[in-house]
């Protein structure tokens, strides 16, 4: 019993093709990965917007803006 198509190496390698686990579930794994990818972007855009809002609330005074403008 193996999660891969190989359960022994007592084979002719010329006849071996796939060696990864969960053969047959490639479609399901793709859907899972795409959902993770899109979810990451949703999280990231919210995170970035919130970061800017927080920084402006904390440092958006004329004093800080002048200091920032002077830094190079």
């Amino acid at each position: 019993m193996s999660t891969t198509p190989i359960d022994t190496w007592a084979v002719d390698l010329a006849e071996v093709t796939l060696i990864y686990p969960w053969v047959g579930f490639e479609g399901a794994m793709t859907v899972f990965a795409v959902v993770l990818w899109l979810g990451w972007h949703v999280w990231q855009v919210k995170f970035e917007n919130q970061t800017y809002a927080d920084e402006i609330a904390k440092y958006g005074t004329d004093e800080h803006l002048s200091k920032g403008a002077e830094e190079h």
Partner: peptide, 16 residues
């Protein structure tokens, strides 16, 4: 969603 806020650009993106 294209450009950062003006305040952030003046401060610098690493200011905080």
């Amino acid at each position: 969603l294209l450009r950062i806020p003006r305040e952030i650009e003046l401060l610098g993106l690493d200011f905080a």
